[in-house]
Amino acid sequence: MTEIPGTSLDAGVVRRSTRLADGRELIYYDDPGTALGPERAVDARALDPRPVTATMRQDVLTGDWISVAAARQNRAFLPPAELDPLAPQTPGNPSEIPSRYDVAVFENRSPSFGPALAEATGDAPAASDPPRGLDDLAALGLGRARSSVGRCEVVCFSPAHEGSFGTQSVTRARTVIEAWADRTAALSALPGVQQVFPFENRGEAIGVTLHHPHGQIYAYPYVTPRTSLLLASLDRTAPDLFQRILEFEQAGPRVVLRGEHWTAFVPFAARWPLEVHLMPHRHVPDLAALSGPERDELATLYLRLLRGVDAVYDTPTPYIAAWHQAPVHVGRDTVRLHLQLTSPRRAADKLKFLAGSEAAMGAWIGDVPPETSAERLRAAVEGVAL
């Protein structure tokens, strides 16, 4: 055991940073009033060297960059509880986290992006051909490739083997939100990073390969295609588009949940049979820019929303919870932080699959009217207790 100095964050959360055996960063975020002390076990595993940074290739027809990360083929797939790679290490389970924890964040062992440019520890292999900025990424040409600089991190919400964000306590949810905000700020400062994306995949129907309650954070070396389309829409309409959307939805029939600082609503043109957006009432570009009261309310309101999503049917709902944030260097004054939670579940025993029109042409056909979805979600949320 070794004592790890702590840094106090908002809401009584304490951050403690260390390194895993192969040099990857591991950060513990301790709950306020935690029973854990400052001492943490050292990672004594003998690990293979970190993989070389993946390569991304440009699709000249669209301008999209496709990361090719062969090391991801070796990631864990639905392991039993006793071999959970996100649980604290035991003699029989050489997991990724050497010590007990409340919330833990660490660099993915098989990342799609990163390591970034040569890091201070010297343990990360340097990227051989990083992008030369946004103009370089926007240029089109056959056979263009660049190193996939950036970072992929795993965010463990709890040491428990099963669960999700929605199964956590209010205190734990607040700790995770503090971790998201702290990592957003840190990753945004890394060289070559253009956008930071925290998200949670929940359920095997989504493709989840670990039942452990966790999410991820991707730090991209480019502005994502979805955000690029959003920036174009802002240019074509008005810089206050998000405020207009919020006021439009607040005045309509699709509001699911509303607090002092946040409103959750089913969007007017929802693509998925279950889709709900959560937006702050004031403009903030990312989680790091949220005030303390906004983070506090988010902890309770987001839990109510997620538990309401689970209460729509008799079994837990698969979903993707995607936190859309402004890019690091563009759109900071116009792109507003917001959550887009989507599920392919269109009935208790039916899923929506993306087939010809959606997958091939990007032309969506909705299965459930957004107003009907909002009514179901409101009823489910009203019955939720924290």
Results as ranks from 00 to 15, higher is better:
3 E>W: 04
8 S>P: 15
11 A>H: 15
16 R>F: 08
24 R>Y: 01
35 A>T: 14
40 R>A: 09
44 A>L: 14
52 V>W: 03
54 A>M: 13
54 A>D: 08
55 T>D: 14
58 Q>I: 05
60 V>N: 14
60 V>K: 08
61 L>W: 10
69 A>Y: 12
73 Q>M: 13
73 Q>W: 09
78 L>W: 13
79 P>T: 07
79 P>N: 11
79 P>D: 08
79 P>Q: 07
87 A>C: 05
89 Q>H: 01
89 Q>I: 01
93 N>C: 04
93 N>S: 07
93 N>K: 03
99 S>E: 05
102 D>M: 05
106 F>I: 06
111 P>R: 09
116 A>C: 15
119 E>K: 02
120 A>F: 11
120 A>W: 11
123 D>F: 15
124 A>W: 06
128 S>F: 09
129 D>H: 15
134 L>D: 13
135 D>A: 15
139 A>Y: 07
140 L>Y: 02
143 G>E: 10
146 R>I: 04
147 S>A: 05
149 V>I: 15
153 E>T: 13
153 E>A: 11
154 V>I: 12
155 V>H: 01
158 S>H: 07
159 P>A: 03
167 T>Q: 11
169 S>A: 08
170 V>A: 13
174 R>E: 00
190 L>K: 02
191 P>L: 05
193 V>G: 00
193 V>K: 04
194 Q>I: 04
200 E>C: 02
202 R>V: 10
208 V>W: 07
211 H>A: 15
212 H>D: 06
220 Y>T: 08
221 P>L: 01
223 V>W: 04
223 V>M: 08
224 T>L: 07
225 P>E: 00
232 A>W: 04
234 L>T: 01
234 L>P: 06
235 D>L: 10
237 T>P: 00
239 P>M: 05
241 L>C: 04
242 F>Y: 10
242 F>M: 12
245 I>A: 10
246 L>Y: 00
248 F>K: 15
249 E>G: 03
251 A>Y: 02
254 R>K: 10
258 R>M: 09
276 V>C: 09
282 R>Q: 10
285 P>S: 06
285 P>V: 04
290 L>G: 00
291 S>L: 11
299 A>Y: 01
301 L>C: 03
301 L>T: 06
303 L>Q: 05
306 L>T: 13
309 V>T: 11
312 V>Y: 02
319 Y>M: 09
321 A>Q: 06
322 A>R: 04
323 W>A: 14
325 Q>R: 02
327 P>H: 07
328 V>M: 02
332 R>C: 01
336 R>N: 10
337 L>H: 04
338 H>W: 06
338 H>L: 07
338 H>E: 01
340 Q>T: 11
341 L>G: 00
344 P>N: 02
347 A>V: 02
350 K>V: 12
354 L>D: 12
358 E>G: 10
360 A>P: 00
361 M>F: 15
362 G>L: 09
369 P>C: 03
371 E>F: 01
373 S>W: 02
381 V>S: 08
381 V>D: 06
383 G>Q: 01
384 V>D: 10
386 L>P: 07
